[in-house]
Simulated assay, not measured.
Amino acid sequence: MTAFAFSGLGLGHAATKTYALTPTTTEGPYFVDEKLKRSDIREAEDGQLVVLTIRVMTLDSEGQPVALPNAQVDIWHCNADGDYSDVKNNIANTCGETFLRGYQISNKRGVVRFKTIFPGWYTGRTVHIHCNVRTFDNSGAVDSEHQTQIFFTEALIEKVYEAEPYLTRAARRDQFNDTDGILNGVSDPSVLIAKASYDEDRVTASIRLFVNPDDAGHTAKTSTTCG
């Protein structure tokens, strides 16, 4: 993970602050390039409303953060029952469905915003949202690609899961933040945990992602199991 630093030049200036690129993670299951440009990805899925703001940044030659406009930000995640759309496996067949998938293009401040539901869980993983950030050249070819995953605090997860449709699921969680191999496989897991607040109507969450727009080394592959 590349790190950059800048520092104040004397008394009264800001203390040294180091920024690091957001860790890439394994792409995880079931990326499908559905090309669904939409901010509300819920469709008919039941679950706690989440308003998720992602700010895409990069680092200039001095290590200072700057917004990255015109990046395509895809997110996808499982529903409250732990199922992904457009997948066929021994648990579910959702081929042709597109729930909880979509992308937005970052504005001049690097910001995209989605409405979704709070993810459920499935065996072997803590609660998470997958994210793929791409930039394109003038011909439309992919210039860079950055896959990561977004997580939530255990306190928030427990609060949301006190209500339906999560509360009465027969399957119980078998993986938590402190035991999840992907979250704990990065040097600083805290940078992948969204800042979030909860009330009766919604979870409001935000995260900054620092990406390298010159890095083409993390190319996502469609991993649907639908033939």
Rank of each mutant, 00 (worst) to 15 (best):
Thr204Val: 12
Lys88Met: 10
Val56Phe: 10
Ser223Gln: 11
Asn89Ala: 11
Gln64Cys: 02
Asn138Thr: 13
Thr222Ala: 07
Asn177Arg: 03
Asn70Thr: 06
Tyr161Thr: 00
Asp178Gln: 10
Arg113Trp: 03
Val211Thr: 05
Asp137Asn: 15
Phe151Met: 02
Gly10Ala: 13
Asn79Tyr: 04
Gln48Leu: 05
Leu192His: 11
Val56Gly: 06
Ser144His: 05
Ile54Val: 15
Thr168Trp: 06
Gly124Val: 10
Glu145Tyr: 05
Asn212Ser: 13
Ala14Lys: 14
Gly63Ile: 06
Gln149Thr: 03
Arg125Glu: 04
Glu45Met: 15
Arg42Met: 09
Arg101Gln: 07
Val127Asp: 07
Ile54Gly: 05
Gly140Val: 08
Asn138Pro: 04
Arg172His: 02
Phe136Met: 10
Ser206Asp: 14
Met57Trp: 10
Asn79Met: 11
Phe136Trp: 13
Glu62Cys: 00
Asp215Cys: 04
Cys95Ile: 04
Ala67Glu: 06
Gly120Trp: 10
Pro213Gln: 03
Ser206Glu: 15
Asp215Ile: 00
Thr94Tyr: 12
Ala92Asn: 15
Thr222Gln: 08
Thr18Trp: 07
Met57Asn: 12
Lys195His: 14
Phe99Arg: 07
Val203Gly: 04
Asp199Val: 02
Ser39Ala: 15
Cys95Tyr: 06
Thr225Pro: 11
Asp137Glu: 12
Gln149His: 03
Thr135Met: 14
Asn90Ser: 13
Asp74Met: 00
Ile117Tyr: 01
Thr225Arg: 13
Val203Met: 06
Gln149Val: 01
Ser223Pro: 00
Tyr198Val: 10
Tyr84Glu: 13
Gly63Cys: 03
Lys221Arg: 08
Gln149Gly: 00
Phe4Cys: 14
Ala3Asp: 07
Asp180Leu: 00
Phe176Gly: 00
Ser144Gly: 01
Asp46Asn: 14
Thr224Gln: 05
Gly8Glu: 12
Phe6Cys: 09
Asp46Ile: 12
Gly47Met: 02
Pro29Glu: 08
Pro119His: 10
Gln147Tyr: 05
Thr53Leu: 06
Ser61Phe: 06
Ala71Asp: 05
Ile207His: 08
Gly124Gln: 13
Val160Phe: 02
Ile150Ser: 03
Glu27Gln: 15
Phe210Arg: 00
Pro189Arg: 04
Phe176Trp: 08
Thr123Met: 12
Leu192Lys: 09
Thr25Val: 09
Phe114Arg: 08
Leu9Ala: 13
Pro69Thr: 05
Thr168Met: 08
Asp199Arg: 07
Ala20Gly: 00
Gly82Met: 08
Ser206Gln: 14
Ala194Phe: 11
Gly227Trp: 08
Asn177Ser: 01
Leu100Thr: 01
Val112Phe: 03
Leu49Ile: 09
Val186Tyr: 10
Arg113Ser: 15
Ala5Phe: 12
Tyr103Met: 01
Ala80Gln: 13
Arg208Val: 07
Val186Cys: 10
Ser187Tyr: 12
Ile182Asp: 01
Asn138His: 08
Lys159Tyr: 00
Thr24Met: 14
Thr224Arg: 06
Asn132Thr: 05
Cys131Gln: 11
Glu27Ser: 04
